[in-house]
Design a protein around this nucleic acid. Structure first.
Lengths: 253, 253
DNA sequence: GAGTGGTCTAGACCACGGC
DNA sequence: CCGTGGTCTAGACCACTCA
């Protein structure tokens, strides 16, 4: 019959495109360099813009590209290793990498958090907001839920509600003496609120780190931190080794 | 003028759709139930299929939906907590949750792995493939890179190359006595090869866990494990607590 | 205002699973 | 075989950034 279906490779175009672009990024582009715009690229490869965009989305997901509306598509630097370390409670940051208390408000813990806190779904807690900056870029936004019973040292009036109160809660928490932490990591998408702080669009992929802080066997606080998945590599230094932080994704010399 | 642009909310349609669908999933659908097909759903909401798909993709990314070509879209069960635990070296799995050695072949470590192994980019290593199954579902595929110098007990001929040889390498490795591990977690997309083992399409989002195993201060092996990001929540039990494994994402009673 | 990426449409065909 | 989700097209308009 006249069916000219000779191509035995049903590999999607966008997948092939992604491979080609990925190799081009390695060999022909420097970090920070801006690519041709999507319309030009699509024309150059002979595909529709939507198809090209599918390839770019994948590359952005893998942290190889960075796209900003009104600006363009740039080659992303290697992912930054951020330590999801020991107590994490506002410890003196190593240089330019630390948590910053933003504010503190009374509120109700969402159901999944309440479950971890062993409290009723609607129970009132202190909600501390913090932001983490690494190498000058925002990498994470955190909501820390602290039941009033964990920090009895504070009047639970709604009083100051600012960064200073946030620091006060953290101080009280530290004084409890934390024995350990349970952590989990999963993929999520940035809520509109987080997206703003992370300088991303809503729905951007994030790594959600949920931490349960323990003191004498009881859960005294729960933290939900969302890290930018495109720019971050979370590191867990079980041996205290810092060397791991470099060189992953580094080009072999 | 006749411009009837009264809507002050430029919230994308797919974002709104996602919210609506998400609420519907909570209230009107049971786990495993299949949704109407995409064409019907799109018509029902008065949007193009591409727009509806954008919403579905987000929900799938968040682990709320599961889509399979030729079958349909189903409501996903809550993410399964998988422990990325202590030595991890083929320890007797807790019930139905364990690593399974697949095979072992000689090969060259890719550049980033070679860097972690402190070896030349092209150096020959044993490449052990393992698969992890949890609750009957494949959740992770792993490539374990072991330099020949770490396991001198084996003749480095390409001999058996099967699951038995893989187990032999693991046994030798365990006999070294591992002091500790450095780990990192980042977002990636499944290579065609991994995708097959994980029962997903190539490019599917995965959590890439890179582990460096140490013995007496030296790196003796490097593992790159890719976990299905849609179905898995990685847990790190610093305190050995297992309770954390349940109840995240559980509906409050 | 020009140029960028982000959203959206209304089609089409293909690959796969199950009947 | 039919129905499903997956890929792809060729347009359009919008929101944003920056000169």
């Amino acid at each position: 019959m006249g069916t000219t279906q000779l191509q035995a490779a049903p590999e999607p175009k966008y997948w092939h495109l992604k491979t080609v672009l990925s190799e081009a990024l390695d060999s022909e582009f420097a970090v920070g360099e801006i690519l041709p715009n999507e319309r030009d690229l699509a024309a150059r490869f002979g595909v529709a813009r939507a198809t090209l965009r599918q390839a770019l989305e994948q590359l952005e997901l893998e942290g190889r590209l960075q796209r900003r509306r009104g600006v363009g598509t740039t080659v992303a630097p290697p992912r930054v290793g951020v330590a999801v370390a020991a107590t994490g409670q506002d410890r003196p940051g190593a240089g330019s990498d630390a948590w910053q208390a933003v504010d503190c408000a009374p509120g109700a813990a969402p159901a999944p958090v309440a479950a971890l806190l062993d409290s009723a779904p609607g129970a009132q807690v202190h909600v501390v907001r913090r932001t983490r900056v690494s190498h000058g870029q925002p990498v994470a936004a955190e909501l820390l839920y602290v039941p009033g019973s964990s920090v009895p040292g504070l009047g639970d009036a709604e009083a100051p509600c600012g960064a200073s109160r946030a620091r006060a809660v953290l101080r009280e928490l530290r004084r409890l003496g934390l024995d350990g932490e349970d952590r989990s990591v999963e993929l999520g998408s940035a809520r509109a609120e987080d997206a703003k702080e992370l300088d991303r669009l809503p729905g951007a992929p994030v790594l959600v780190v949920t931490t349960r802080y323990l003191s004498r066997g009881a859960t005294v606080a729960v933290s939900v931190a969302t890290y930018r998945a495109d720019t971050c590599r979370l590191t867990f230094g079980d041996t205290g080794g810092v060397e791991f932080d470099r060189s992953l994704h580094a080009q072999a010399s």
